[in-house]
Amino acid sequence: MIQSVKDQIRREMSGAALPLIAFSMALNLSVGQITGALKIPVYLDSLGTVLSAVLLGPWAAVVAGCLSNVLAAALGNPTMMFFLPPMIAIGVFTGIVARAGWFRKSSLCILGGVIQGLLAAGLSAPISAHLFAGTTMGGADFLVVFFRSHGYSIFESVLFQGLLMDPVDKVITYLVVFSLTRNLPGRLVTRFPGASHLSTSGE
């Protein structure tokens, strides 16, 4: 069992995969530039993690997600460093559902996105509430204060805000990655270990 996990990690973290993991980290941190330019009210800050989970596997996604949160802290948002558990959950869950073939059908992607959103909201709420009293230097802070002003506790406010926003964000993330992997040339996608669980354009 341990040996097979070690082999899997070694395969997902091979020399050829390292640049893709690095690109996924940079994508997590830079996607805000695109959503900002298009004025779309979503974060999609786990897009790179989901992409590497689908193309490489869960362990590579965990590395991409955790390191991008650490880099985000270095780039001015220190609260991100404390949100490693949700990122680990996103990487592992997406890697597992991608292997189960969920990224072959859009309906399964939507279901996966909803479950992922609920999971992320449930895991990030205690961290946000107990360490930062619900204020994480993001746009959703206003929503937390809004719920608090209506008499809810900090934990309830953070949880409601997460349950309201995370499923939508994650469904869009999953659908974007689904469309990306379908439209990328098969010749390129087959170079990555996760290609066998996808239906590509098959160039």
Binding site: L18, P19, F23, A26, Q33, S68, L71, L75
Partner: peptide
């Protein structure tokens, strides 16, 4: 990976 990511962050 971290060094490569800083390269991509500069380029993206």
């Amino acid at each position: 990976i971290i060094l490569l990511a800083t390269f991509y962050l500069d380029q993206l």
